[in-house]
Computed example of a mutant assay.
Amino acid sequence: MLVFATDLDRTIIFSQRFLTGCEDVTLVERKQSELIAYMTGAAKELFKKLARSITVVPVTTRNREEYNRISVLQEIDYKYCILNNGGRIYVNGAEDPTWNEIIARKTAALGKTYDQILHEFFKVFGSAGLRRYKLSGDLLWVLSVKDYFPADRLEYFRQYAQGYGWNVAATGKKIYLLPLFINKRKAVVYLQTTYLKDVRLVSAGDSILDRDMVTGADIGFIPRHGDIAGLERSNVYTTVNQGLLAGEEILKNVMAMAGKKEGC
């Protein structure tokens, strides 16, 4: 059985800044009057067709409220989804209680609490460079920055945080502070061992938070515009296209695999 575990933002759906040069565009997310995310019309139809053909597992850093805004997900049938970067797993719309227990147990053993790690971040970087920050789903800090933070200072803080069980990931103008065990790949592995045994796994993602999931799959796809594009692995492919057309290209490749019942 073929399973497609895919990141959403900047992999399958895209913000307005990726629309340049695309004519076949359809809106797939809005927040009140704000237009947020798009796909090509062809990609949307491919995604819906793919969900009817194989097991599709959306995997995202979004929380449930943000996830529910994506209209195309209301148009497909799927049994599993992974939210909060792997912090929550949903099966038939309900949170998996065993996974929640695992996350809660590991959270209690962290070397620093959520408030403490944020305090340490402010001690190193201050708060003047932040636009806003939030604790998403009570599982990870999401910090939106005004400008890119120096890479050497981020690396220093990342190494410091790792000693207390925390990951620091920068993608675009967002910085994520999250426990090392809240990881998309770990959540996908749990799904495989619990519900989806003996499957061929295809995965797609664009950012450092997707790297383990993409490289750990049987076949992985990275959009050319992605932070991890060009990653050299025998099982990982970078798209020819960028932006919305990269998302469409990924879906075409997975659809071809579904039709052939085999890899690239």
Rank of each mutant, 00 (worst) to 15 (best):
M1V: 09
A5K: 03
L8Y: 01
L8D: 04
I12R: 02
S15G: 11
D24P: 11
D24I: 03
V25K: 02
Q32D: 14
L35W: 12
L35F: 11
G41K: 07
G41F: 00
K44M: 06
L50R: 00
R52G: 09
I54A: 05
V57P: 02
V57K: 06
T60Y: 04
E65K: 10
N68K: 08
N68R: 09
V72Y: 01
G86F: 03
G86E: 02
R88E: 11
R88T: 14
R88M: 14
G93R: 01
R105F: 12
T107L: 08
A108G: 10
K112Y: 06
Y114P: 05
Q116T: 10
I117E: 00
V124T: 08
R131C: 13
R131Q: 14
K134Q: 10
L135P: 06
K146W: 03
D152R: 08
R153T: 15
R153Q: 14
F157E: 06
A161C: 05
G163H: 12
W166Y: 10
N167P: 15
K174S: 13
I175E: 02
I175S: 06
I175Y: 04
P179M: 14
K186C: 05
A187I: 04
L191Y: 09
Q192N: 14
T193Y: 08
Y195H: 09
R200Q: 15
V202D: 04
A204D: 02
G205N: 07
D206R: 01
V214G: 04
G216E: 05
A217H: 05
F221M: 05
P223C: 07
G226E: 03
G226N: 03
D227R: 09
E232Y: 07
S234H: 13
N235V: 00
V240H: 10
N241M: 10
L244E: 04
E249K: 05
M255V: 11
A256S: 15
G259Y: 06
E262K: 13
G263F: 11
C264A: 15
C264K: 13
